[in-house]
Amino acid sequence: MTQIIWNGLFVGSFYALVALGYSMVYGIMKLLNFAHGDLYMLGAFIGFALLTSFSGFTATLSLVALLVVLLLSMVGTGLAGVAIERIAYRPLRSAPRLSLLITAVGASFALEYGMRIIAGPNPQVYPVRLGGSSVHVLGARIGVAQLVLIGVAIALMVTLNAMVMRSRQGRAMRAIALDPVAARLMGVDVNRVIAMAFFIGSALAGAAGVMAGSYYGSINFLMGFIIGLKAFTAAVIGGIGSFKGAMLGGVVLGLLESFGTHFLGGQWRDVFAFAFLILFLTVRPTGLLGERVTERV
């Protein structure tokens, strides 16, 4: 039982990281960024390239080196996210929502098959593999590496949440999500703040990619597809557009999957996850924490 919960929390923390960026971009632009999962893939590949080029000295300090690589990959993925927004989405800001959505699907394919050309169609073996020692807690076997990764995920989410809730730019992001015109009238440079949201969201996805690569040990150019859909599911479960909802949704989805896999078998995992997506969309489309604004006129 503890093992099932633990596995769920671990996978859930990845989902939460990716879902956060998804939800953030949706909240601010009302765009479902289908390329978001592929930024997770891109992050994994940037990390792969960095680790391979450093491989001479990573064997010994794997964890420290991994954290440095993680940071660099986050910056790289963040910049890629900003570039996608600038090239593909910004010119369509005032176009119908559907054009933007189709463009997002296009951006997703461009990333996937662009990476296929660069890195080839075959899975790559990650040069760092976090296995190693584990500790026993309440009957569950928990890897030290897992603990570190969850710690990093939590730290990233806490930092982001503090930034969004307290800082001037975070406040501007929430204001733009509610009313971009009013935000402009307060002097907010909407383009800059949106670019910033893309940077942060993409960087978090990139971080999750590197973490997944070093944990599962193998990456490929399509690895972002399913996780993108899962992150979307997590965001919907939590309440799309809400930061806390994305984190909660990620963890809830991880737990649901973990229990589903345990009782139904691994082959049902994705069926189970997407059945919950449909369930939530029908029964509670605003999600667990979705905001229903009460407004007096």
Binding site: A175, A183, M186, E291
Partner: peptide, 19 residues
């Protein structure tokens, strides 16, 4: 009016001081 409906009164005023 276009105030930011889910931001608090204080946060709305802080948005006025964005620049």
């Amino acid at each position: 009016r276009r105030i930011f409906s889910t931001l608090t009164v204080q946060e709305n005023l802080q948005m006025g001081g964005y620049l």
